[in-house]
Design a protein around this nucleic acid. Structure first.
Lengths: 211, 211
DNA sequence: AATTATGGATAGTATCAGTATCTAATACGA
DNA sequence: TCGTATTAGATACTGATACTATCCATAATT
């Protein structure tokens, strides 16, 4: 299809598609002349992915480009690729210069409790540490009991995720692992918010009825 | 304490504190003269909250101001306040003008399956719908089985949250509900990412050993 | 032949989250 | 009490980000 059709199909403005092409998020179409190139379904889907990653997941264009690069040219194995992908997701570490031998005491304690290995090179370790520290500093520390509950259920979710990694090809496994981690997060978060509202509604109604 | 001490204690630059004051995120100190005001522990904690909400949760200054307004002057009840708070959290709805009678078919189906009521006025309903639509469009649709698994565990987490709402005062209940929803999300997400890496590591090692 | 569409390059814009500067008033130490 | 430092409050400036618009030369379409 021509680019005008790609604009229609994807709903993304022409100027923005050109911008994504410049930034390397979208692969070029197959050029048939100096002023014509043809695009396919893969371009439509890539644009949907870009919009999902920037819009719903909230990644910047730069981070989105990193994720796309990872699924196009993955690391040697799924584990490393997944680690690199997680490193692109917020909340980001702000590398304080001169404070390199970073340690994440809050995360370390939690991981020890749950029998998971502690490796400060996992990006998610720093992310967990920062999330715990922020909640504490804001006056809402998370105690061990709550963390145990959270982790038990989150682990069950993660086990489902990992158990359903497709095994047709390494490529599709990596895409699923990387994008499933990122794209399903907003779903999980939305489900929790909905459950909160549902439960709060019941409690509110009970309170009202009791008054 | 004077503002210079607040700068030290909080780690937030002076110019930034003044900015937060201007934007109404931070309450003014108690003025003792035209050029002096005194600040307390509540100011230190408020700054930590602002940094947590903007930095770790990823809210904009505007949205952070909305959340703070909600816990300072809540709606009539917890349920409404919680709903309003959830409305400030990403991913945001982009109000397409002239398309007001919004409906969220994906979310409606899911909620029906799980026996929760469908009300398009819950912000999280639109958020769920958008998250599901984005995953689908990007080529990673979520089937019912997965949603059932996710929802079962997420609901267990939410039940724990709601069961632990403090009942000393309506004020503290509202603060806990609003900020617990927002501040604990990054923790849950980080735990899932860690579990993914942990499980992928095992699987990778198994693969390597088997080869 | 005239109009329209495209690729590629470049420049411009809006928003956001601070940062910096300035002034007048005040605090505080010597 | 003099002189330096600090502060509140107002206003202006900055850098990054994510587009958006314009231009041109070429080529496709009618």
């Amino acid at each position: 299809m021509r680019i005008s059709e790609l604009v229609e199909r994807s709903g993304v403005p022409l100027a923005t598609i050109k911008y994504y092409l410049r930034e390397g998020l979208l692969m070029p179409g197959e050029a048939s002349s100096a002023t014509q190139a043809s695009y396919g379904e893969d371009h439509v889907q890539r644009l949907a992915l870009i919009r999902a990653l920037t819009g719903v997941v909230g990644l910047s264009i730069q981070k989105t480009a990193e994720v796309i690069r990872l699924i196009e040219r993955p690391r040697t194995d799924l584990f490393l690729t997944l680690g690199a992908a997680i490193g692109t997701l917020p909340p980001y570490a702000e590398d304080v210069p001169g404070e390199n031998p970073r340690d994440y005491p809050l995360a370390r304690t939690v991981l020890a409790r749950h029998g998971q290995i502690y490796d400060p090179d996992y990006p998610a370790v720093g992310q967990l540490d920062r999330a715990l520290a922020a909640a504490s500093a804001a006056g809402f520390p998370i105690d061990d009991d709550r963390l145990d509950h959270y982790n038990a259920h989150v682990r069950a979710i993660a086990e489902y995720d990992i158990a359903h990694i497709p095994d047709e090809s390494a490529q599709s496994a990596i895409e699923y692992a990387v994008l499933g981690t990122a794209l399903y997060e907003p779903v999980i978060v939305a489900l929790r918010r909905l459950a909160h509202q549902d439960l709060a509604r019941h409690r509110f109604i009970a309170d009202t009825a009791g008054t």
